[in-house]
Write a protein that binds this DNA or RNA. Structure first.
Length: 416
RNA sequence: GCCGAGGUGGGGUAACGGCUAUCCUGUAGGACUGUGGAUCCUUCGAUCCGGGUUCAAUUCCCGGCCUUGGCCCCA
């Protein structure tokens, strides 16, 4: 027997039913904000992703050479492809561009709870807009989507990598990229002892950095402003504006300037959402402002977006299955042609099955019962001769003897 | 890549190193030729893969694969 590949999943009908319901709610929420769907290819040139994230990510990507010798990759995320499309085809459209997507992505990683090699992301990219307003919209939308699927048990962390970078570079001109990266890694791990030691060793002024990291609420915001210069003050003012607008939606982020994880291309506001009630992989949303357009050869424009981890969300969302009412047209062997004719007619409005097992009448009804069909329509010689149909409500056991018009009418009154 | 746990029909399970691998559920059919659910009978269907130890391996050992909790990583 052939097993499914490592890190992939099969979704049986019961689960797909629920996944589609949640997907639809997320789409609806994004569309209510004026976002429109965009679709990118399942695979792209590998370069698109290495340009964004460096050669080292090849280890974590499904990359391959096609028959023409091209280096391709299954998309590990969808932001870079969307920006590619923007540059190729949408640069001259009027801003803002509000785009959303829902698709599968692939990463070659060790699978564990909430982490798979094929997984689904629902995301948006917002291109253009004044920074404070656009960032507010992005964050409010992410929360609106989560709320619209009935999720409320999560924490929103808001950070700013611009301020974070400036906090170590503004008084330390000679600090190189590598050292910065090391510092960010330690911040992300919250390993402040090692961080302190490193800063001491390198004689890096960490006052601004630690002031930021300690900033949990707005009480020390004025002290922060004193430490930084004009440019940083403007950024802080922007954050305050965003927080104020978010409060309209009753969204109150936790300020968290330790958000720094490996996101070289993020440039300003960043945020992450964590679900309570998941294990190690509890982040269900991540996003922020980034600069990719110029890197990909386009004309500079400010951009931001986020991606929701659909599979992790499915772990915590509670959703009822949708149960459509189903009909089985049951007939004797000699009347099958009539059954198929009736089914053709009824399918214009209803969900209708017919027997293809060649079962007798009793076995057809037994099947209907065991798979949860709600109504059986019985056609035998008597029905055909009298041009009537027997409708049986399998829930109540009631039976009716009806003409075609009355049959359809009655099915409708039963809520089909 | 690292540390730990696990793997028996489709699902859930039993088997001190020893009989044709247990039972429940399920599948298909029958008892029942125009009326479902109950009952009974029959059928189908499994020891993850490969080595090793042994007279004998589902059981013990090693390796792999897969699942799973965590670490690394998470663009």
């Amino acid at each position: 027997m052939i097993e499914k590949p490592r890190g992939t999943r099969d979704f049986l009908p019961e689960e797909m039913n629920i996944r589609r319901i949640v997907e639809k709610k997320m789409r609806d929420a994004a569309e209510r904000w004026g976002y429109v769907e965009i679709k990118t290819p399942t695979f792209e040139h590998l370069e698109l992703f290495t340009l964004k994230s460096g050669e080292s990510i090849i280890d974590e990507i499904y990359a391959f050479k096609d028959k023409g010798g091209r280096m391709l990759a299954l998309r590990p995320e969808i932001t870079a492809p969307v920006i590619r499309i923007y540059i190729n085809k949408m640069q001259n459209r009027q801003k803002p561009l509000r785009l959303y997507y829902f698709d599968n992505c692939f990463r070659y990683e060790r699978p564990q709870k909430g982490r798979f090699r094929e997984f689904w992301q629902f995301g948006i990219e917002l291109i253009g807009g004044r920074r404070d307003l656009a960032n507010f919209e992005m964050i409010a939308l992410s929360v609106d989507i989560l709320r619209s699927i009935g999720l409320n048990n999560f924490d929103l962390h808001l950070g700013d990598v611009f301020l974070l970078k400036r906090s170590i570079t503004r008084n330390n001109n000679d600090i190189d990229e590598e050292k910065q990266r090391k510092i960010f890694r330690l911040i992300d791990k919250k390993d402040y002892n090692t961080l302190n030691a490193f800063l001491d060793d390198e004689r890096i002024d960490g006052e601004g950095l630690f002031a930021l990291l300690d900033l949990k609420d707005l009480s020390t915001i004025d002290d922060i402003k004193k430490i930084f210069g004009e440019e940083e003050k403007e950024e802080i003012e922007d954050i305050l504006k965003i927080l104020d607008l978010l409060s309209i939606y009753d969204i109150h982020p936790i300020l968290d300037f330790s958000i720094a994880r490996g996101l070289d291309y993020y440039s300003g506001i960043v945020f992450e959402i964590y679900s309570r009630g998941l294990g190690a992989q509890k982040q269900i949303c991540g996003g922020g402002e980034y600069e990719l357009i110029e890197l990909f050869g386009g004309k500079s424009e400010n951009t931001r977006g986020f991606a929701l981890g659909f599979d992790r969300i499915m772990e915590v969302v509670k959703e009822e299955r949708k149960n459509d009412k189903r009909i089985l047209v049951v007939s004797t062997e000699e009347c099958r042609r009539h059954a198929i004719t009736l089914s053709k007619e009824l399918r214009k409005r209803f969900i209708v099955e017919t027997d293809i097992m060649g079962r007798n009448l009793k076995a057809q009804l037994s099947y209907a019962n065991s798979v949860g069909i709600n109504f059986a329509i019985i056609i035998g010689r008597k029905e055909v001769e009298e041009n009537r149909f027997t409708l049986k409500n399998l829930t109540s056991g009631e039976q009716f003897y009806l003409t075609i018009d009355r049959l359809i009418e009655m099915l409708q009154t039963f809520g089909l």
